[in-house]
Amino acid sequence: MNFDTIKKKLEALGYKVSCFDTTAEATEYINGEIDGKTVGFGGSMTLEEMGLYKALSTHNDVRWHQRIPEGKTSKEVRLAANAAEIYVSSVNGLAETGEIINIDGNCNRVASIFYGHEKVYLVAGENKIAKDYDSALWRARNIASPLNARRFGLKTPCAVGELRCYDCKSPERICRGLSVLWSKPMTGEFEIILIGEKLGY
């Protein structure tokens, strides 16, 4: 996939942008960039598929609630991730017009993306890219969120029915917080990692 147009748009919005043809190349790059740091991960199938936790953990202190150490709770790990020097997350939707969209249940991920770290890396496979804001938001609500609900084995309408958002009132609903980055936040570094393969939901 040619990332030239979206790369230029994101750079104009203040982000550093790095593009890779393959997942392996992107993983190798991030692993080489982060060393001796505390690193927080957001919940993400993209990061899982990249094998990034295993790579970074050999020379960093990585906090991820999908890998809870013995004697720790999920809440403790989430809080530790939020306090990390570096934060890494995927995205649910990335518009060619530059908007970056994420939907969250506990909202630890969207909170961490916004503020508090030396640097934030946001990773997106080519399947996450949409033509504009409305399309990226639609993707996050009607593709990414239902697939995550199914992954968790929930009984929300989107998990058991047609793949779409029902704007449900289910107690198991995981669409509870929405974050939109219109431009790079004023504090901290942000780098967008674009990968020419399909990753995550």
Score class of each variant (00 low, 15 high):
residue 134 D to F: 11
residue 191 E to W: 12
residue 135 S to P: 11
residue 168 C to Y: 12
residue 117 H to V: 01
residue 119 K to S: 00
residue 141 R to Q: 15
residue 29 Y to V: 02
residue 152 F to D: 12
residue 181 L to K: 14
residue 144 A to Y: 07
residue 87 Y to T: 06
residue 35 D to H: 14
residue 121 Y to R: 07
residue 105 G to F: 05
residue 166 Y to K: 09
residue 8 K to R: 15
residue 196 G to M: 04
residue 70 E to D: 14
residue 142 N to P: 11
residue 120 V to G: 11
residue 178 L to D: 15
residue 58 T to E: 14
residue 68 I to E: 07
residue 157 P to H: 07
residue 25 E to H: 05
residue 64 W to R: 08
residue 52 L to T: 12
residue 94 L to C: 01
residue 139 R to F: 06
residue 13 L to M: 12
residue 19 C to D: 07
residue 14 G to C: 07
residue 61 D to L: 12
residue 25 E to M: 06
residue 7 K to S: 09
residue 145 S to T: 15
residue 156 T to G: 05
residue 162 E to N: 08
residue 190 F to S: 06
residue 4 D to Q: 09
residue 122 L to F: 07
residue 26 A to E: 04
residue 127 N to K: 08
residue 25 E to L: 08
residue 160 V to R: 14
residue 145 S to A: 15
residue 77 V to L: 09
residue 2 N to I: 09
residue 27 T to P: 03
residue 85 E to R: 12
residue 164 R to L: 12
residue 167 D to A: 09
residue 117 H to R: 04
residue 34 I to S: 13
residue 144 A to V: 02
residue 160 V to Y: 05
residue 50 M to T: 13
residue 64 W to M: 08
residue 194 L to G: 13
residue 46 T to Y: 00
residue 69 P to G: 14
residue 165 C to Q: 09
residue 162 E to T: 12
residue 183 S to W: 03
residue 146 P to M: 10
residue 137 L to G: 09
residue 45 M to I: 00
residue 19 C to Q: 11
residue 96 E to N: 15
residue 191 E to S: 09
residue 161 G to L: 08
residue 7 K to C: 02
residue 148 N to R: 01
residue 47 L to T: 09
residue 24 A to G: 08
residue 18 S to Q: 12
residue 89 S to C: 06
residue 61 D to G: 04
residue 17 V to R: 15
residue 198 K to M: 02
residue 151 R to M: 08
residue 144 A to G: 07
residue 134 D to Y: 13
residue 111 A to H: 00
residue 16 K to F: 04
residue 147 L to N: 14
residue 9 K to N: 13
residue 74 S to P: 06
residue 73 T to V: 03
residue 155 K to I: 04
residue 70 E to S: 07
residue 176 R to T: 00
residue 102 N to D: 06
residue 85 E to P: 02
residue 43 G to K: 10
residue 59 H to F: 12
residue 187 T to A: 15
residue 40 G to F: 01
residue 84 A to Q: 07
residue 175 C to D: 11
residue 49 E to I: 01
residue 174 I to R: 04
residue 163 L to G: 02
residue 173 R to T: 13
residue 192 I to G: 10
residue 141 R to Y: 15
residue 21 D to Y: 02
residue 117 H to M: 03
residue 154 L to Q: 05
residue 129 I to Q: 05
residue 141 R to V: 08
